[in-house]
């Protein structure tokens, strides 16, 4: 099992690194523009590029937030439930996320197809819309993987408990 799961975890981690690198690129491009325009060498279409880096970066790190359970919730009520109920609710929430993300993946794919058909490009530089959608679609798909991994992790303690 771990032999299949470990590479998937590593993939989510690698996507997160790529996402943070995209943020870093957005920061460096902006700073280059800030400095460049003082000496009449601005970065052309910097707003387009920053939007690309931030959108792409965001979707590449979102799976990591799913994997590490960074998504916040309210523990006020749940804390008073017995552990098996809590575990069941956690799994139910992850399943809801999987269904939601699957629908998002399907419809994002459709929306991407439509924009591709229109030949959409970014407003100033004319960057093909493909560049924006590829990280988005990859991020949604990886978020499904990450949610499934958390479900598997959630079931595991039950096995140990019954064994003990």
């Amino acid at each position: 099992m771990t032999r299949i799961l470990a590479p998937l975890r590593a993939l989510v981690g690698a996507a997160a690194v790529a996402g943070v690198l995209a943020y870093a690129a957005a920061a460096l491009l902006t700073v280059a523009d800030v400095v460049g325009r003082q000496i009449s060498m601005p970065v052309p279409g910097v707003v387009d590029l920053v939007q690309l880096c931030v959108l792409g970066g965001a979707w590449l790190v979102i799976p990591y937030a799913f994997l590490t359970g960074a998504h916040v919730g309210v523990d006020l009520v749940v804390d008073s439930f017995p552990p098996p109920v809590r575990r069941t609710l956690r799994i139910a929430a992850s399943l809801a996320a999987v269904v939601l993300l699957a629908l998002v993946l399907r419809q994002s794919w459709e929306a991407f197809g439509m924009q591709l058909m229109f030949g959409d490009r970014s407003q100033q530089l004319g960057i093909p819309i493909l560049w924006y959608w590829v990280p988005l679609l990859a991020g949604v798909a990886l978020s499904i993987v990450a949610s499934l991994l958390t479900i598997i992790d959630g079931i595991k303690p039950t096995v140990q408990e019954s064994a003990a």
Partner: peptide, 13 residues
């Protein structure tokens, strides 16, 4: 059913 918009955003449509 009905919309008012700019031809230029997104560009090229």
């Amino acid at each position: 059913d009905i919309a008012h918009g700019l031809h230029g955003i997104p560009r090229g449509r």
